[in-house]
Simulated assay, not measured.
Amino acid sequence: MEGSGAEIGDEIGEGSREVEGEEEEDFIWSCWEGGEDCFTTPKKRTVVTAYGEEEEVLELKVDMVFPGWEEIEQQFRGYAKQKGFGVARRCGSLKSSISHTKDGSDKEKGIGKEKRNCLWTCECYGVPERRRKVIGDKVASDSQLHEVIGSGVRKFKKCQCPVHVFASVNKLGEWVIRRAVMVHENHYLTPSKSRTIAYNRKKFLRENPHVLTQANVCSKSGMSVAQTYNLVAVQRNGRGRMPFLRKDLNDVVAKERKARTSGGDAKAMFDYFKKMKADNFDFFHMYRQGANGMLQDVLWVDARSRAAYEEFGDVVCFDSTYLTDKYKMPFANFVGVNHHGQSILLGCALVSYENSNTFEWIFGNWLECMGGKAPIGILTDQDPAMRRALR
Rank of each mutant, 00 (worst) to 15 (best):
M1E: 12
G3K: 03
G3W: 02
A6H: 13
A6C: 11
S16Y: 12
E33I: 12
G34V: 12
F39L: 08
R45A: 09
V47S: 04
V48Q: 00
V57Q: 02
E59A: 03
V62F: 08
M64K: 14
M64T: 12
F66T: 09
G68L: 06
W69K: 05
I72H: 11
G78H: 10
A80E: 08
K83P: 02
G86D: 09
H100Q: 11
I111T: 12
E114I: 14
N117I: 06
L119T: 04
E123D: 03
P128A: 12
K133D: 12
A140I: 07
G152K: 02
G152M: 03
K158P: 00
Q160D: 11
N170F: 11
W175P: 08
W175T: 15
V181M: 03
V183E: 03
E185C: 04
H187D: 06
L189T: 03
Y199V: 14
R201I: 01
N208W: 01
P209C: 01
T213A: 11
S221K: 10
N230C: 09
L231S: 05
R236P: 00
N237I: 01
R241N: 07
M242Q: 05
P243A: 12
F244R: 04
R246Y: 12
D248K: 10
D248H: 14
D251H: 15
A254L: 05
K255V: 00
E256F: 07
R257Q: 02
R260M: 05
G264V: 10
M269P: 01
K277H: 08
D279T: 13
N280D: 15
H285Y: 14
R288E: 15
G290H: 09
G290A: 09
G290Y: 05
G290P: 08
A291D: 14
Q296P: 01
V298K: 04
L299A: 03
S305E: 07
D319A: 03
Y327N: 14
P330A: 04
F331E: 08
V335F: 02
E354P: 13
G364I: 01
K373Y: 14
K373A: 15
I376H: 14
D381A: 13
D381R: 13
R388C: 09
